[in-house]
Design a protein around this nucleic acid. Structure first.
Lengths: 107, 107
DNA sequence: GGTAAGCGCTTTGCCCGGTAAAGCGAAAGG
DNA sequence: CCTTTCGCTTTACCGGGCAAAGCGCTTACC
């Protein structure tokens, strides 16, 4: 018998996936296209981005809308559930501004 | 010329490192020894755990106290800065309980 | 006295997930 | 024309997280 499913554990696992938090933060600014999102996140590679987006769509956090195939135009936006992650991102932002300084370049 | 250091970007990078959030959550329950922490986190391998802890100590989020060498006894605890991450973890917990259900086992 | 278990890790391979780079088919702008 | 942009996919690579074993030592049990 499997051990009980813990939503918190699952959430931590989701949010610790590389780039997930960055993607959500970027989408909190508003819907974006694929490359636009990629630029907003900064440094993510398209394969990973597309994989993460699929995952987030499956989980109901992100919504993908294809507006036209040719020329390609796609919009990624947060679902209501995704929007609610703003609290999390804001908590991180507050903490970061209080506690993270530029790292000593001399190492 | 380097682009400006963004504390929020840095925080997201820190918190998306595998196991970091789990470690912090476990330490919010109180100080723990290495193996105790490992068990609380669940599934992390000791090499990774030790590396993450080093990192968190360097960043001033976690404090390591060696109480005795033999028998070995070490305590890891959150610094005040680390404690303040409770807001983040709580935001995640709230979100998780609202939005994450057990995944459909039939796929 | 033997021996098993616990402590806090480190070391040793291995393997998979994230990586850079290239590309594609169509449209739009210089 | 030629480049750029769009939204990706494909390919091949490399490093980080992985399981497993081990170490030096103490404590607990039989």
């Amino acid at each position: 018998m499997a051990e009980a499913f813990c939503p918190v554990y699952a959430a931590l696992n989701l949010l610790q996936e590389k780039w997930t938090l960055h993607i959500i933060r970027a989408l909190l600014e508003g819907p974006k296209g694929f490359n636009e999102l990629s630029r907003a996140v900064g440094g993510v590679n398209p394969a990973t981005l597309s994989q993460r987006l699929d995952q987030l769509v499956r989980l109901g956090v992100v919504e993908k809308r294809v507006e036209s195939y040719m020329p390609p135009r796609t919009r990624y936006s947060l679902t209501p559930a995704g929007e609610e992650l703003e609290e999390v991102v804001q908590a991180i932002e507050r903490w970061a501004r209080r506690h993270l300084k530029a790292p000593d370049p001399a190492r």
